[in-house]
Amino acid sequence: MSEQTLARLAKAASLKWRIVNLALALAAGSMTILVAALWLSEPRLPLRTHLAFGVLVVIGICWTTYAGWRLHRKGRLFVRDRVIAGWLALAFGVLCEGGLLLIGTARLAALPLIGAAALILVRAYVERARLRTIERRLRGRP
């Protein structure tokens, strides 16, 4: 059991996950720069469009920061990164749905995103609890 656990924990620092997080950082950073450039190049926009661009830039900065933190962090995370990603996805899904409802364009359009984010978050908490139980057993605590 401890070999399997150690192998799973080592996966967090593997090259594959580093490449995935680097891709996330580059994609989120690029999206943020492009949205900010578009936003700054259009001086006369309605207030709600300014708000939408601002929210998109904040979301991009958050995902870029998350990916940078994940790349920088080494060692055991005990699925903490998945819990954080789940909370980010859930918060941004709710924010997106709130914005869509506020402007009245599409009702409940982000509901699948919110459901998927909630599922990811629940699975991350379950996995974290499982890993913590295994850690306690390996250390000889009940």
Rank of each mutant, 00 (worst) to 15 (best):
T49R: 15
Y125P: 00
D81C: 02
K74H: 08
D81H: 11
L34M: 13
G86D: 02
L113R: 01
A91E: 02
A116V: 15
L71A: 05
L56C: 12
V58T: 09
A37R: 13
S30D: 08
S30M: 10
L34N: 10
A116G: 03
V35L: 12
L102C: 11
W87K: 03
R132T: 00
R73S: 12
A106I: 02
A52S: 10
L90T: 03
W69C: 08
L77R: 13
G86K: 02
T133Y: 04
R80Y: 03
L101G: 11
G75Q: 05
R44G: 04
H50L: 11
A110L: 01
S41K: 13
L56E: 10
A89M: 14
P46Q: 12
V58K: 02
A91G: 09
R73E: 12
A37W: 11
V57N: 00
A109W: 15
G60E: 06
H72Y: 11
R132E: 08
A25E: 07
R70Q: 05
C96D: 08
R82C: 08
A89I: 05
A110S: 05
S30F: 11
L40S: 07
L101R: 05
A129N: 09
R48E: 13
Y125M: 05
W63N: 09
A116I: 14
A52W: 09
T32Y: 02
E97D: 12
I120E: 12
L90G: 01
A36M: 14
F53M: 06
I84C: 03
W39N: 08
P46K: 10
L108C: 10
L24Q: 05
S30T: 15
A36Q: 10
L34A: 13
T133N: 11
G93N: 01
A85K: 05
L111M: 07
L113F: 11
A37M: 05
A28Y: 08
L102N: 03
L34H: 07
V35F: 03
R128P: 00
C62M: 05
S30C: 04
T49G: 05
T49F: 12
I84M: 08
A27Y: 11
W39A: 10
L113V: 11
Y66F: 15
G115I: 04
A117Y: 01
T105C: 02
V126M: 06
I114S: 00
C96E: 09
A89E: 02
R107C: 03
A110C: 08
A27E: 04
V122D: 03
E42H: 09
M31W: 07
L119F: 12
F78M: 06
A124P: 03
L38N: 15
R70H: 06
V35A: 08
G98Y: 00
V55H: 01
M31C: 12
M31P: 00
A36R: 12
T105L: 15
A109F: 14
A106Q: 06
L77H: 14
I59F: 09
L45C: 02
K74A: 10
F78H: 12
R128W: 05
R44E: 14
A91I: 15
I103L: 07
G75H: 02
A110H: 02
R130D: 09
G93Y: 01
A25K: 00
